[in-house]
Nucleic acid binder design. Structure first.
Lengths: 205, 205
DNA sequence: TAGACATTTGACCGCTCGTTCAATAACTTA
DNA sequence: TAAGTTATTGAACGAGCGGTCAAATGTCTA
């Protein structure tokens, strides 16, 4: 059965590895040039195969975008759950969410896409993403409200503050480069520090 | 010559009014659904005319995007010039730029587009926009450095801070609605307050 | 080696979109 | 009213894209 001491992955595993490579390539393209600006021929060329071969690993182009966007919502909602479990101030919870979500998106494992144009996902999938993003937004607002109550957050409009924070986060994949001066952890911490400081009742120096 | 006491604009003016309406419609579409997600047929339908008629007011689709993006760089660089002339702290200058730029973009007069995918502008126009955005970015970093020196800004990475601020600003047209609870001035002030607070040496309460 | 199965390919289809153009309509002026 | 100019239209084009399919190639097992 097992040859080469399992040094070479079996067929099934190879199939999975190829699919993952495809999703990585897709996320890279979608983040950089947008969904409509990235053709399947582009992806195929980047992977050194032909367009038609892609369809053995994914049903259609829409699914590529949906999964990548969905992955980002998984990261964000997991960050929210972790923050909820912590016994700490509302401000620290916000900080936690920003940092964890960011790390996940920038590490791109699994591949994440945060920016996509309205109308690129079909109604059913758009609804799923919308609901999950709404959930994130509402949780963040709730953390801010908690922070205002426990005195860690300055009195502010939770909705506006959340929009500012999420905007800054969603935009990051546009300028972040893995070969840049700062690592993804440094950037994630820097952003979390600055954004929470913007709503903190007391400056954390 | 002049009939109706000039109550009705002449042909030339009408032509200009129509062109402006076209640019407004284009900016609205590009901001909401993206450049590639907005067809000329969409714009024509929104204006109640046919696709072919558009070409009497604009040479091609690319020009529509370019002008809208260029308009946003005009607003931002004008804000920078105003801030430079003020005798004040680096922090206040940052605040000023954020607020003024924001107001201009949200008021959409002239129509502005801040978000567009890589590869949608041809090389020549992309270079023009890139250079002007770089200029904005460098000016903001300089203001931050000034702020650190004059003690109004906390010690931070100017490049990272600028990216966070610009990200948050570029994203705003995606969630801002003119029929929402807050006016564009309120939003602009709120964002400027929160973002500058994030790098302020002393909280402004 | 033969057969079964997975993978990849090139050619092709249908559709959308930006753009062009000749023809028509609307308006202005003489 | 006639002529000239501007505005608008419907039809058509060529290119690019997502997706399909039968055929060819490669890979594993009996």
């Amino acid at each position: 059965m097992s040859k080469w001491n399992d040094a070479v992955p079996n067929r099934e595993t190879q199939h999975e590895l190829k699919r993952e490579a495809l999703y990585r390539e897709a996320a890279k393209g979608f983040n950089r040039r947008g969904f409509r600006g990235t053709s399947l021929a582009d992806l195929a060329e980047g992977l050194g195969i032909t367009k038609a071969a892609l369809y053995h690993y994914v049903p259609n182009k829409d699914e590529l975008l949906f999964r990548c966007v969905y992955n980002s919502t998984i990261a964000s909602l997991e960050a929210v759950e972790v923050a909820k479990k912590e016994e700490t101030t509302g401000l620290n919870r916000i900080h936690r969410v920003i940092r964890d979500y960011f790390c996940a998106v920038l590490m791109a494992n699994p591949p994440c896409v945060t920016v996509y144009d309205e109308g690129t996902l079909d109604a059913k999938n758009a609804k799923i993403i919308y609901d999950r993003r709404k959930q994130l937004s509402l949780s963040m607002r709730e953390f801010i409200r908690q922070g205002v109550e426990d005195g860690s957050v300055i009195d502010c409009d939770p909705k506006l503050a959340t929009n500012i924070i999420l905007g800054s986060m969603n935009w990051a994949p546009k300028w972040f480069r893995h070969d840049g001066e700062l690592s993804s952890e440094e950037v994630a911490n820097g952003i979390a520090d600055m954004l929470t400081r913007g709503i903190a009742a007391v400056p954390s120096t």
